[in-house]
């Protein structure tokens, strides 16, 4: 009996150690928060266009009854990583023919307009979320974040942080393939 009891601390320590080893797995990002929106209908929101920009505004109605999956990208001109991401999104629109919607998060209209003029505007529609309320509806934790929304308005995927770098792009493209927005296997 005493013999078995004496082993208990070791056994507990081993179980803890197993969890720690799992926790150190390099793919795990302790800061990453899963979204509750996945497989759920996109949230209700209705955003006006950025003042002074011709691109129309964005609301939930624009995310349903599309022919294929669409990308919703949350961006802001004050967000440095958004600049890095911008070219990659533009390329996806130009080269892969994907449809890209934008939510301009807590950004002054004039800053956003200037930013888009400088870097190009790949967005089909952009909603201006000055108050950040739509951001809450989307469960936003930072900028940039990018969502893939299915043709029926279901949120299929969420990417936190800029889609920059080979690994991130590969992950995003894989999600696009799974959503059916890109033909499979194209990305090697």
């Amino acid at each position: 009996m005493g013999r078995i009891l004496a082993f208990i601390p070791l056994a507990i320590a081993a179980v803890f150690g197993g969890f720690f080893l799992w926790g150190l797995n390099p793919d795990r990002d302790p800061n990453n928060i899963p979204s509750v929106l996945i497989s759920q209908p996109a949230p209700q929101f209705d955003l006006a266009a950025i003042e002074g920009l011709e691109t129309p505004g964005l609301s939930r109605a624009d995310l349903v009854d599309n022919a294929g999956p669409v990308i919703v990208n949350v961006f802001a001109s004050w967000c440095v990583p958004c600049r890095a991401e911008h070219g990659i999104l533009t390329q996806m629109v130009e080269k892969d023919g994907l449809r890209l919607f934008g939510i301009n998060y807590k950004d002054k209209p004039e800053d956003a307009t200037k930013w888009l003029a400088e870097l190009g505007n790949p967005y089909e529609r952009i909603g201006s979320d000055l108050s950040g309320r739509a951001g809450i509806e989307w469960g936003l934790s930072g900028v940039p974040e990018t969502f893939i929304v299915g043709p029926d308005g279901t949120v299929l995927f969420r990417y936190v942080g800029p889609v920059v770098g080979d690994e991130a792009i590969a992950r995003f493209r894989e999600a696009l393939e799974q959503a059916g927005a890109l033909p499979r296997g194209q990305n090697g």
Partner: peptide, 9 residues
């Protein structure tokens, strides 16, 4: 300036 990203400019 854009940390390696080629902008339209």
């Amino acid at each position: 300036a854009e940390q390696g990203v080629v902008t339209p400019a």
